[in-house]
Design a protein around this nucleic acid. Structure first.
Lengths: 347, 347
DNA sequence: CCCCTTATCCAAACCGCTTTGGATTTGGCC
DNA sequence: GGCCAAATCCAAAGCGGTTTGGATAAGGGG
């Protein structure tokens, strides 16, 4: 019951060497099935479990994956990150890996990676939220620390392992849907566009417009942290303008909720007077499901991305020579209650 | 540049013993300032950092705190948890501790704690979301694993260290505010009431009503995971009933947003036709600030709670003999746009 | 000048596990 | 019966730090 038999004591109780006991428990073939059974029974009885630090020291593997998140970046402190973590965490624990998360001051981010490498705190890391001018991957290569990117690093797609959804295509399709419904004044409430995912979404939006000979109105394009008030305030401002949009394309459910609130306050009915398409990361506390989801959306489970990213990384670690591999997830375009034909131009 | 000098190599380069080098770097007094300087310079130059596994093995301290979260519990997979983690994480890294998070199947929760203890994966843990019939603390005591509770364990307040906000009082005050505004039919959209925090909030609500001779209407009290649709659907149902509430008291901003949506869909103006008070955990992506916040709320920063919880725990660890200590945070009652006098009984 | 602190530094043990390189026993085959 | 390979098991050497118990040198007082 009391915690704390170690290998030595266990082996003494069994009249066996530490070697044999260790091998028995770790499934090596050089030990008879009979002894193996005897050993594991005694281990269970005494509640033996190998000290992880000792094992890690001996094997040279940290059996842990690091996630470092700069604390000021709101973008990261967000539920999307959490959901990703949840997915990744499942994979880790299924494989006996620990997940260690470091919340650090921005200027200490590089330091954090260096520490992980030099102190051997983790066998690999995940890069979250790559920016347009990303640099972390270079540091990590230099540090010889395996990593997987959640998202893509522009210009380094070939040489890095990553998992990403098709941001450009998703927003292109969403835009086309709105265009097909007759909307021509479409607002884009994007995430921070110095991030790669947001740039791609914007590109998808613009390209879809361009394909129909439309040029985006700069007044209808915003970019910021995806909070609820961000959605509400900007939508409000646009809706009250002389030439309001009839549709919104939004990068996050949370902001979309804000937009819906603004619409309500303006006396506009969502899905009728104003159309909304949002990206939906399938967050567990913000379900947008049902036969007819509240919001028409492009959906891609970020939790699933977390699971997969973790798998990629663990593979890289156990197979260091392998080439970089990447996973491209396709977002679904799902019709909900928030879209409808553009209202006849009346006002 | 290349990572990987160890203590031995470093000491050889310096013509010193490992002992001296170790002591120099760890600030022990038995080494002259001159050598200490020489040592640290060389360490910096060679990029030396002690291997954490080795250090942990030698010192017997894991220098890590564990957070185990059963994966099915949506309640835990929520942004509140994330925000708490963010706060705690800052404290940890400031003190050189790692944060390890285990996402495990429900039935493996106990197992996870046992492993942390027996394999010495962490020096302590945080208990999240204590239930009415909580049991984890007993296991942890048995395992001799220091812990701090985020929330309170009913019946074990004296013997455990915890940090909590005053849930009962906060909801009592909020209810009183609504009563003062003339509302008598007040709906309670609570979190899962098998959780301690939700029970307390309900108690506060009921006691405030009772103090004015009112008995709560069971039809106006709901309890579930605090999602957006939960708020919307239940509010919708109530508002469409024969005898609708004029005010809502809600356990989470997210659900409050849902309630506001329902109100909008019913053509009711929030803060006029219907009043809303919500608890606000001060989540970074759901700001409810400004001169006049959107929602009238009881506010308590869960991120701050995380920081403090971590501090309590680290103190416990470095001072194992100390008595349990607890921190009781008071939620602020903040007036926003979502409350107003009860409409004259007209319908 | 000698003895006793005090200031420095070191060799070696230890933390608890894995893993290498045998040693010993057993069994099959000619 | 003798020989060789397979099957078991073990002693000891790491892994990379921290820490104990001295040893050595330097300084101070009588």
């Amino acid at each position: 019951m009391s915690n704390g038999v170690n290998l030595k004591e266990l082996s003494q109780r069994l009249n066996l060497s530490q070697t044999t006991v260790s091998r028995a428990l770790n499934g090596y073939p050089e030990v008879s099935e009979e002894t193996r059974k005897r050993v594991s029974e005694m281990a269970a009885k005494l509640g033996y479990a190998p000290n992880s630090q000792a094992r890690r020291l001996a094997t040279g593997r940290a059996m842990a994956i690091g996630h470092v998140i700069p604390r000021s970046i709101h973008e990261m402190m967000n539920p999307i990150f959490l959901e990703f973590i949840a997915g990744a965490g499942e994979t880790y624990s299924r494989h006996g890996y620990d997940m260690i998360i470091s919340v650090v001051d921005d200027e200490k981010e590089e330091d954090a990676y260096r520490q992980i490498a030099s102190r051997k705190k983790a066998d690999g890391v995940i890069i979250h939220g790559p920016a347009n001018n990303e640099h972390r991957h270079k540091l990590l290569k230099e540090l010889n620390l395996p990593f997987v990117v959640h998202g893509r690093i522009p210009g380094a797609e070939q040489e890095t392992s990553w998992i990403d959804m098709n941001n450009r295509r998703a927003f292109e399709r969403a835009t086309n849907l709105l265009l097909d419904l007759g909307h021509t004044r479409i607002a884009l409430l994007n995430g921070l566009e110095h991030m790669d995912f947001a740039s791609r979404r914007r590109r998808g939006f613009e390209e879809a417009l361009a394909a129909r000979g439309l040029t985006p109105d700069p007044d209808l394009m915003r970019s910021a942290d995806m909070t609820e008030p961000y959605g509400c305030d900007n939508a409000m401002e646009m809706l009250k303008s002389d030439n309001p949009p009839t549709a919104f394309l939004i990068s996050s459910m949370i902001s979309a909720i804000g937009v819906a609130r603004a619409a309500g306050q303006c006396g506009l009915k969502t899905g009728k007077d104003v159309s909304i398409i949002t990206h939906d990361d399938a967050l567990s506390f913000l379900p947008n499901s049902g036969e007819v989801p509240i919001f028409t959306c492009t959906r891609s489970s970020v939790r699933y991305a977390g699971e997969k990213a973790a798998e990629l990384l663990l593979n890289m670690i156990s197979n260091p020579a392998a080439k970089p591999v990447s996973l491209h997830l396709d977002a679904e375009l799902i019709i909900g209650q928030s879209t409808g034909p553009a209202p006849a131009a009346s006002r």
